[in-house]
Structure formats: C-alpha cells, structure tokens
C-alpha cells in the first residue's frame, strides 16, 4: 500500500520536476536566443521587461494568450486546432525516456532519474520525432493557404529525409552499447563519450538534428522571405505560441538526445550528474543558437542533395565500418 503510494508520489514528483524545468527552460531558451543573437549582431536584445529583460517570456506569454485566435475561412477547423497541440505534445512526451542523472537513493529505495526507463527508449524517441512531422504537416495543410501548405510539405520532405540519416547515425551507438535503453547507452559511455568513439556518427547526427529542429540553416519550412512564415503563417495567439514553444522544446529534446547518445549523458567530473546533464544540454543549445547567428539558410535543393547524397551514404558507410570493427573485435 505504502509502496504504491510512494511510487505514485515519486512519479508525480519526477513528472512535475521535469515538466516544470523543461517548460521554463524552453521559455528562457527563447529569451536566451534573442539575447545572444542580439549581442552577436551588436544589439541589446529584449531588455525592458524585468531586470535586463528577464520577465520577457512572461510578457510574451501574456501577449500570446490575450491575442485573438484566428481560424482562416476555409481551413479544416479541427485539424487546424489540433496541429499545434500535436507538435508540442510530441516534444514533451519525448522527455519520458530521457535519463537526466544517475539513480539516487530516496526514501530508502533506488530511484532512477528518468521518468520511465523503457527498454526501447531509442525507438520511442524515434517514433516521437517522426510523429512531430505530423503536427507541422497537418498544420500547414489545414490552413488553406499556399504558403502554409508549401511550408508543411517542405517540413515533411526534410524531416523524413533527415530521419534516415539520424537513424543510420544512431545504429552504431546502439550496436556498441548493445541496448535500446537510453540509460544503458549512457552507462556505456562512462569512460569515453560516444562522440569520441563514433566521431562520424556524431557529426551526421549533429547535422541531422539541426535539420530535424527546422532551424537555420535548415529552416526551409518557415523560410520567411519565401513563405511568409511557412506552416504557421495562418496561426495566431496561443496556437502559434504552441508551435513556437514546441520548437524550443524540440531544441531541448534534441539537445538531450545528443547529450545522452553522444556526449556521455550525466557523466562528468566533480559536479553531480544532473548538473553535467544540464550543462551539456545548454551547451548544445548555445551551439544551435550560435549556428543560427552565423550561417545563412541553405537552398532547398542543396538541403535535399546534402541529405540524400552525402549524409545517408556516409551513415551507411559508418554503420558498415562499426559492424566490421565489432565483428573483428568479437
């Protein structure tokens, strides 16, 4: 009895902790991005709300919540309303399997710092990131606007293409750690992060992750100078907000994936595991922002050519080499 209660309490606690942290992080990620981009372009960035602009996310939230929620005439109402939710939900659900620290002792039992340590965590992550396309594509399609539709189509093509490369990049990691469980993958990196062991896989994964996040230089689906705002052109108010938050949640998810799969998860000297995990995720996020501040957008044909002609063959090659190496090593 007591045991069940405790389990429930622990789960709720973990859920609350993760949800709170992740959402706050997503909100502040927006601020951080605007600030960092501003400084990189020698501007101040938001600095009016709160100390140095610290309350800007709150102001944005209030603004988005109080805006009129427009649904275009001729739009497919239900799908139109559902799409942003799909895109946020898939991003949030991904955190269920991400281990953000070593197990700790609490109330006399071992509590793993992951909401649910699935045996097939890696596959689950993949499934969710595939589902994320759904939200974007549906949103673009249901808007009854050519820009949205084009954006949605681009997103679909781009994400499907790069998922392939992403999968090919993870395969060696999974093979090396001999498990689909993310915790196992992290534990396999105790001595050496996969980044060092599988450098090629890491690079492929990095690029694929960037493409998956639909951010510069891969922001074809919302390319504002071609498509106004791509798949979310017709969205306003909190529905747009959901797409927006979803995008930054995705950033954290992908950062976490990168950390877990290649950067050695929570392992690091001195500091506690959770801190290392956070530092690594934030580092990846900073890197993404830095890339956005530096590189221009690719052309659509370049994007597709790069994905199919470079990344996929490279991934296959890498997989072959890893397999051969593992067989040779026994």
């Amino acid at each position: 009895m007591n045991d069940v209660l405790l389990t429930i309490i622990l789960i709720v606690l973990k859920l609350g902790l993760v949800l709170g942290t992740v959402l706050t992080m997503a909100a502040y990620m927006v601020l951080a991005e605007r600030k960092i981009l501003g400084r990189m372009q020698m501007r101040y960035g938001p600095n009016r709300v709160g100390w140095g602009g610290m309350l800007q996310p709150l102001a944005d939230l209030i603004k988005l919540l109080s805006k009129e929620d427009l649904i275009p005439e001729g739009a497919d109402r239900w799908i139109f309303m559902l799409a942003p939710a799909i895109s946020t939900a898939t991003a949030l659900l991904a955190f269920a399997v991400i281990p953000f620290g070593p197990s700790v002792q609490l109330f006399g039992r071992t509590v793993p710092l992951v909401i649910c340590d699935l045996d097939i965590g890696v596959l689950y992550l993949f499934a969710l990131s595939s589902l994320a396309v759904y939200g974007v594509a549906l949103g673009g399609w249901a808007s009854q606007s050519k820009y949205s539709l084009l954006g949605g189509l681009r997103a679909m093509a781009q994400m499907i293409s790069y998922e392939l490369a992403m999968g090919l990049a993870i395969a060696p990691v999974v093979m090396a750690s001999r498990s689909f469980s993310l915790t196992a993958v992290v534990e396999a990196q105790q001595t050496l992060p996969n980044m060092v062991r599988h450098p090629l896989a890491f690079l492929i994964f990095l690029v694929a992750v960037m493409a998956e996040s639909k951010r510069i230089p891969f922001d074809m689906p919302e390319a504002e100078n071609e498509l106004v705002a791509g798949y979310h052109t017709e969205y306003s108010g909190m529905r747009f907000g959901m797409f927006f938050v979803g995008e930054y949640l995705n950033l954290i998810v992908l950062g976490s994936m990168l950390t877990v799969l290649f950067l050695g998860g929570w392992y690091g000297p001195l500091l506690p595991g959770v801190c290392w995990f956070l530092i690594k995720v934030l580092g990846v996020a900073f890197f993404f922002i830095w890339v956005r501040g530096t590189l221009p957008r690719l052309r659509y044909d370049q994007l597709m050519a790069f994905g199919w002609k470079v990344l996929v063959p490279l991934g296959l090659l890498n997989l072959l080499i890893t397999a051969a190496w593992m067989i040779w090593r026994g």
């Binding site: 960092i36 501003g38 400084r39 990189m40 372009q41 020698m42 501007r43 101040y44 830095w290 501040g293 530096t294």
Partner: peptide, 12 residues
C-alpha cells in the same frame, strides 16, 4: 566572427 561580436558593446 560571431563569437567575437558576442562580447562587443552593442551599437544601438
């Protein structure tokens, strides 16, 4: 370049 600019004073 962008990294260096990150630490410059804003011109605005």
């Amino acid at each position: 370049v962008t990294l260096r600019y990150l630490f410059r004073r804003p011109v605005t």
